[in-house]
Design a binder for these strands. Structure first.
Lengths: 209, 209
DNA sequence: GAAAATAGCTAACAAGTGTACGCCGAAGAA
DNA sequence: TTCTTCGGCGTACACTTGTTAGCTATTTTC
């Protein structure tokens, strides 16, 4: 890579990092200004345009990056679980560790999911659907769940996990432990309920899958 | 009430209504400006201060009002259900009707729950806790759920309902119907799972309640 | 009826915003 | 070497924002 492209990449990173740094409990992405981000990145406001068309483009980049980080972490967590221990517990604990160590990344995903930009909402939901789909596959393959039930169950589980992550942001470490245990209990309810529902009369004679 | 206080109340309402009107999929409360709201309400920017200390105070008023609207509606829905039909289905359908006919109110609650103001987050969570508590009571009284399980179950149900409400905002009427059915399925899973968990060995010998 | 209170107004200010334009100097291509 | 490309900068412009200060007309109080 040429020395020029190298420098450009470096500045681009500085912009992304600057934006992530400015996020906090009191500061959402939509409240960031182009000038602030440029200032923190150490460049002139007008130079911003050499890298992104506008703030929205920067934000979408951040969502993609955040989603990737989360997915990679979860994959690692699942591998760690496969050599002994409950997959569900391991996944949940991995997720909570992610929230704990990347609060601003999680905050971005959480807020922009219901934010004012359709492009943002779409991008975040795409990231979340990755999880739902993976969990859906798992439920069908490993837990023998019927198709008519598995997606609903997977989606509900992901919703609960995200919601707990959101609550965790405002809690102390010990409170989080209790929250995690409750979450595991809730997910267990869904697992047992899915099983029970599948065995109930209503679903006995479904033929698909 | 004096003619003066009467006029004041009228203007105050105009401000609240103006703010609600400006909310939309593309516009969040935090993106509203004091001047815009005043303009739409038909008063000078500086007159805003005769009614609210700042935008935050207006916003908190709106959250309280929105929460009240929702609660009243749900109470009606429950009454309607008590004379025949499933309470769960009736409550969920009532909630979805609320989202459908007051999208901006729901959007406010949804977004400020994870917003940048701690006061807002607290206010919205207080509204949501009303539901969780009521459902918790119901689960203990009517479904005979153990205390150790009922709150977790109630909370999970409320989370699922809110999450589906959020999804519904972007959907067409027919898509919402499918979404509602899936939500009912998910809530049923939690109900059956709670029951199953309570009967399982782990909870057999709990003595409280 | 006189005095006090007050909802609303206009004017004004300092601060911050996004973005257009044009220049510069170093890197890359010929 | 010469020419082109391009990342970064400074200046500038037109807007919008929240908030202060002070005035006015009307209602309320005494």
């Amino acid at each position: 890579m040429g020395i020029r492209a190298q420098q450009k990449e470096k500045t681009r990173r500085a912009l992304v990092d600057a934006a992530f740094n400015q996020l906090s409990a009191e500061r959402s992405f939509s409240s960031l200004s182009l000038r602030e981000v440029a200032r923190e990145a150490g460049i002139a406001p007008t130079s911003f345009y050499r890298h992104f068309k506008d703030m929205e483009e920067l934000g979408l980049t951040m969502v993609d990056e955040g989603g990737l980080t989360l997915r990679q972490l979860m994959r690692k967590g699942r591998q760690r679980a496969e050599q002994g221990g409950s997959v569900i517990r391991a996944s949940i604990e991995t997720f909570m560790e992610f929230v704990d160590s990347n609060p601003n990344v999680f905050r971005l995903l959480l807020r922009e999911r219901t934010g004012t930009s359709a492009a943002f909402r779409f991008a975040v939901n795409r990231e979340i659907r990755h999880f739902t789909d993976e969990l859906n596959d798992y439920l069908q393959a490993r837990a023998g769940r019927l198709k008519a039930l598995s997606y609903a169950q997977a989606e509900a589980m992901v919703v609960l996990v995200f919601s707990s992550g959101s609550e965790a942001l405002d809690l102390t470490r010990t409170e989080r432990k209790a929250l995690t245990e409750r979450l595991i209990l809730q997910v267990a309810m869904l697992a047992m309920g899915g099983e029970a529902l599948q065995n109930s009369q209503r679903y006995k004679n479904l033929t698909d899958q």
